[in-house]
């Protein structure tokens, strides 16, 4: 039986208490909610915090409501299942449920939370291995080692952003609310991520992700297209979130195309957006946007499937996503 390292949980009932605990125990502590990302990592000894600050009993993290401006407030502790089943979410932000329903399995989604999914550790199949396995390659720079086995001459880590909700939240222009010892800050979802496999978050270690605010969709439409081997369990090897706001005349007024799982952070394709804005979603426009979006995608050999094919699939999936928004 693969077991957790020694650890012990606390169950704060307020944000302040949680933040205080984290400040008190420092690197020996970790926030945890569903545990579906952290506990496997702990069992593989990728992370070994002793003090677990289980935030699921904090009421503010359990909010799921529409605010006065029509925005959706999602507490970080809302489970994926709850997000999928919520009628207001399904009516106002259908893409959220669509994307969340692709995450892992229905059972895991009863545990996993929206906040947890936004913060999931970057993945790499040189890293997501047991301690013993990693020892056989003398570890990697993300944990206990020196080099990046995906690109041994690289000075940086290439672990992959593997959340399904991240590209969607970025595409929808969501904001995240973080609370730390220095107070509360609200930043765009996009600003939460860094292009680095190790320091993949801009969130400070002590900060707690409390909630998200997703603006009202208004006339906009969005979709998420996920590529993976199986219809359950699997992380994306490619995730495309596309958001389009049409103007009255049938052309695109505003667009965001975000590519997940082909880099260490969600890649926002400005070029794809440029190719779309001002045009109708005709095949040529979609093709141009898809080609543009595929350019910066840089899949490396650290997930399922071959890299050439994954790269090829970016344009295909962007095209499909945009076609779905016609």
């Amino acid at each position: 039986m693969l077991r957790l390292p020694p650890c012990e949980a606390r169950f704060p009932t307020s944000i302040a208490e949680a933040v205080e605990l984290k400040a008190k125990y420092g690197p020996e502590a970790s926030y945890v909610a569903g545990g579906t990302d952290l506990y496997p990592n702990m069992k593989r000894r990728q992370q070994t915090p002793y003090h677990l600050i289980d935030v699921r009993r904090i009421p503010q993290l359990d909010r799921l409501e529409v605010d006065a401006d029509g925005g959706l407030i999602i507490g970080a502790g809302v489970t994926l299942t709850r997000l999928i089943r919520d009628g207001r979410v399904a009516a106002g932000w259908p893409v959220l449920g669509q994307a969340a329903a692709t995450i892992s399995t229905p059972i895991l989604r009863n545990m996993g939370t929206v906040g947890g999914n936004l913060l999931i550790d970057t993945r790499c199949n040189y890293y997501d291995q047991s301690y013993e396995w990693r020892k056989a390659i003398d570890f990697c720079m993300k944990k206990d080692g020196e080099i990046c086995w995906v690109a041994p001459s690289s000075p940086r880590c290439w672990a992959v952003q593997s959340s399904d909700l991240v590209p969607v939240m970025v595409a929808l222009g969501a904001e995240v609310i973080l609370v730390g010892p220095e107070g509360t800050r609200t930043i765009p979802a996009q600003a939460l991520y860094h292009n680095d496999g190790i320091e993949y978050l801009t969130k400070k270690r002590d900060e707690l992700l409390v909630s998200l605010r997703v603006p009202a969709m208004g006339t906009a439409k969005a979709t998420y297209q996920k590529l993976r081997r199986r219809g359950a369990f699997d992380f994306p090897v490619l995730g495309v979130a596309a958001w389009i706001r049409p103007n009255g005349g049938g052309t695109v007024a505003d667009a965001r195309v975000v590519i997940g799982a082909v880099g260490s952070y969600p890649i926002v394709s400005e070029a794809a957006a440029e190719a779309l804005v001002g045009h109708a979603l005709e095949d040529d426009t979609i093709d141009a946007a898809a080609r543009a979006a595929a350019k910066p995608a840089k899949p490396l050999d650290n997930t399922d499937f071959t890299i050439g094919w994954r790269k090829d699939m970016v344009a295909v999936y962007v095209r499909r996503a945009l076609a779905a928004l016609r």
């Binding site: 039986m1 693969l2 077991r3 957790l4 650890c7 012990e8 949980a9 169950f11 945890v32 569903g34 545990g35 579906t36 506990y39 496997p40 069992k43 593989r44 677990l52 289980d54 699921r56 299942t81 892992s104 399995t105 229905p106 059972i107 895991l108 009863n110 545990m111 369990f233």
Partner: peptide, 28 residues
Amino acid sequence: GCELGECGTCTVLIDGEPILSCLALAQA
């Protein structure tokens, strides 16, 4: 079957909802 949440074998019900007992810290 795996203790990593990758197979579903350890499923139990909490308040009637299935969860993975291998990824559930007992304390919680």
